[in-house]
Design a protein around this nucleic acid. Structure first.
Lengths: 258, 258
DNA sequence: CGTACCATTGAACCGAATCAAACGGGGTGG
DNA sequence: CCACCCCGTTTGATTCGGTTCAATGGTACG
């Protein structure tokens, strides 16, 4: 039932070991190809929940999801978003339980790869390396988020997210600058350690300065370099009331903290 | 040269596979015991630097260290502190390069376990599990930090750190409530996403309310439950000027964000 | 004894949170 | 088809926590 030509498969981590894979660069010790089951997870439902035993990983075929971490004291925070082609449930260090929950942001379809099958395929060195690489990349991302939340101002954090989302969007094919946010303002706020009002305000501000255009969840990046400048804190982003336009980057910012 | 009875060894991850280990519960497939070299790293110097190839891990014998992450844009942030008995340089997911730098907070002495030796011993299932467990624990810690920095107020974060430091201190033997901070206010501030002034002010405030006593880096926890209450945000901590004393916990706080 | 660094404390400012209200869009039921 | 409602979003006014700038104080070290 899995259409291997689908766009989400072309970037899938498992594409080389999946059923009837076109590429044949699998070493001699390759396992029998995966024949993943599939599931549909409606918007708002969880793929899996933090603390539950790891039973499978979920390559996202359509839709998107958020990762949510719930701390011992009950504080919840979104720790990341996943788009189609990403793998949900990959736990570093062979954890036996999911360290976070994954919740669908919209109606989604995903493959289901049993954890035993994954482990079996990990014997394949090339595949293993790519999986470990993905895990490392995720850890790196989380660390970048930590620094962002810990020592950057609100506008920077949001610019970072927008650029990141745009990158992922472009990595997945279409080169147009239009992207539709699957997540709510509250989700974005949680990820960035802000309030939803602040996120909304900043988006409006970005739009008013011509960096982007927003209408509800329809978003378009207009000035990527400008956003990058905001991210790097080169531009102080004019206040809504005072329209200070013209001077670009006056002060070398010198990273604070540490 | 390694005195196995030293206090820092008794909690060391490697104690069971280290030279002349007293406990003999090593399975049949055990490698030859470790005979780690040792190094001294003066205060302010690095054990290793982010991005450099992983050559060894460093079980801390004496002293303490901070982990520092430097983001692509040049923002630096302390991501954790390590005390004697901890292992520096354990990289999850078999990374080939250190993902952070480790810097000595004071003059330190540590073992040096070559990464090949570590890998060889990882064949021992029990040892392997304990190492992976430590890695998972570290990841968990970092996530807690992320949530703290992303959605808790300054006093909560600091209370969290103090309780954590105290826990580690007690796990290492002495039951007295006196601990000496090896890190500067700036380091603490960086870890918690604050400024050093705020950290200093909060410590004074904690002291004035009788939660702790501080004198420079000499610290003593007086009211652990009180600190825990601050951590859980049950108590709003009176402002320095207005001395509101008596009322404990009036509002159920309801975690924000998400 | 002097110097350098770290820590404390104060005053003013600013950014983001909070409280509150209005708006918009998408769905349902009349 | 339209009216209505619900939920997410936008926008405004105000408050407040934490930063920033600045000056003082303490401790260790040469």
């Amino acid at each position: 039932m899995s259409d291997h030509g689908s766009p989400s498969c072309s970037l899938c981590l498992f594409r080389h070991v999946c059923r009837d894979a076109s590429t044949a660069d699998i070493p001699s010790n390759a396992q029998k190809p995966l024949q993943p089951a599939q599931v549909r997870v409606p918007a708002g439902n969880a793929f899996f929940r933090q603390g539950r035993p790891v039973t499978a990983v979920f390559p996202l075929r359509q839709g998107s999801a958020k990762q949510v971490y719930e701390s011992p004291l009950g504080w919840r925070q979104v720790t990341g978003f996943s788009l189609s082609g990403d793998i949900l449930g990959l736990e570093p260090n062979e954890a036996a339980a999911y360290s976070i929950s994954a919740v669908a942001l919209q109606d989604t379809a995903s493959c289901v790869v049993a954890i035993e099958a994954l482990r079996a395929h990990m014997a394949n060195p090339a595949f293993r390396d790519s999986v470990l690489g993905v895990m490392r990349h995720q850890a790196e991302r989380e660390r970048i988020l930590l620094v962002a939340v810990g020592s950057m101002r609100a506008a920077q954090r949001l610019a970072m997210l927008l650029l990141d989302l745009d990158n992922e969007h472009r990595r997945r094919g279409r080169a147009d600058s239009a992207l539709t946010l699957a997540m709510s303002r509250a989700d974005i706020a949680s990820l960035l350690g802000l309030t939803l009002e602040t996120v909304s305000r900043l988006l409006s501000r970005f739009a008013s300065v011509g960096l982007i255009s927003v209408q509800q969840r329809r978003l378009r990046l207009i000035d990527r370099d400008g956003l990058a400048a905001v991210y790097a804190d080169l531009k102080p982003i004019p206040q809504p009331a005072t329209a200070a336009m013209g001077s670009l980057a006056d002060t070398g910012p010198e990273p604070r903290s540490f």
